[in-house]
Amino acid sequence: MSCRVENMISNLLLVLFLLSAPTTVLTDSHSMQILATYIKGVTPFPEFSVTFMLDDITVGHFNSDTEQYFTRDNTTNEDETVSHTYSIAIYARPFLAGILTFENNTQSLQLYQMISHCELLENDKSGQMITKFAFSGSTINEIHFHDNKLTHQSTNEMATLFQEYFKWRYESVCYPSCITILRNYIKKRWHQVKRKVKPRVRLFQKALDSGGVRVSCLATGFYPRHINLTLLRDGQPVSDHEVTGGDLLPNGDGTYQMRKSLEIRAEEREKHKYTCAVKHLSIDNKLEVALEFDPGVPFKSVIPTILTVLSLVLVFITGVVIYKCRNRRADQDCGSSSKVSYSSASTSEECIDAITQPQQQATEISETLSN
């Protein structure tokens, strides 16, 4: 049961992470995500659970059923790092339970969640920390802490005393602890967070029923998740309001994919040159790919005409060959009977070859065009 719950919560955190994380910032930054859930009521799930993620990698999980912290996919000794994460898990439990009691809600089943995010920028510079609190699926509080400044957004106005308490708590406990855990995990999981996989990029087109064309750029199989994918028209970026897609999606092997599309009229396809530019940490320079040739646009539209012309040519050639064979046979009838016999057989074979060869050639051409 605990493994199933852990996987469900980890998947939920990954979805939240992908929805909230930027995908077009190409920096060597890293983040720690902490998701805590407290449930009051009868459910098959643990009353309290915490999941820790380094960037998009689940590194550990704690729940109240086992009262233990379990590491994930570690290959090094992480005892010191685990002690810090365990302390945060133990601290968060009474904190969330207290807030849930403070809500004084009469529902039989109550759910309170907290997601906290801290980051390290390039050159190991500490970034911001963002914490969101949600009750029954709706965000009720959001706290931003950066450069010793705390800003707060809430459905209810927070008293000055509480604001001062939160500021002190973030300065002395929450922010330093999160940054410390993040630095330790980066050292321990260096081989994972520094993994770089180049994207496979394609720019292709598809004919639409409306007569237009959809041009799509697909980048897949890349890691880390940060990527900059741009559709270009004659070397200039296409306006955002013309482009659809752009969502970052996970692949089954731990890599990611992104697709952006543009719908254009068929005549625009001939007037402009479309390319796709990709920037990624695994690529030294910008990667630019050209539009793949698609025989369906607009070549398939002329195939019926070509086949009709070939059929008429075949009929004409067949008629000419038959006419010549008959005339040649009539001339041979004037000769000797033995010669006639030999010539008739020879002429028949020549006529058959003359008829069948153009038919075979026309058939081969038709099959090539159809494919």
Rank of each mutant, 00 (worst) to 15 (best):
S64T: 07
L109R: 10
D65V: 13
T58A: 05
T76N: 10
E67M: 09
S83E: 12
Y86S: 04
S83K: 04
Q110L: 13
T106W: 11
T85F: 09
I90K: 09
A89M: 00
F62A: 00
T71A: 07
V59Y: 01
S64C: 00
F70R: 12
E119R: 11
Q110Y: 03
F70I: 13
S108N: 12
L100P: 01
E122R: 04
G98Y: 09
E122L: 06
D73W: 05
I88T: 07
M114A: 15
M114E: 08
E80A: 14
Y86T: 06
F70S: 14
N63P: 06
N77R: 08
L111Y: 08
P94V: 06
I99Y: 09
C118I: 13
T85Y: 12
D65Y: 10
M114T: 06
D73Y: 11
M114I: 12
E67K: 08
D73M: 01
Y86F: 11
L121K: 13
I115E: 01
L100Y: 00
I90P: 02
L121F: 11
I115K: 03
N63Y: 00
E78R: 01
T58L: 05
L109Y: 05
T85C: 11
T75C: 06
N123V: 09
N105F: 01
Y69P: 02
F102I: 09
G98M: 12
Q107P: 01
Y91Q: 07
L120W: 05
N63R: 04
F95K: 10
N123R: 13
P94E: 08
T66R: 08
E119Q: 14
I88M: 12
E119A: 11
S108Y: 05
P94M: 08
S87M: 14
H117P: 02
N105W: 03
V82K: 06
S83I: 06
D65R: 03
N77K: 12
I90M: 10
R93F: 11
T58E: 06
L120Q: 05
L109P: 03
E122D: 13
A92T: 02
F95A: 14
T81K: 02
G60V: 04
L120E: 11
G60H: 05
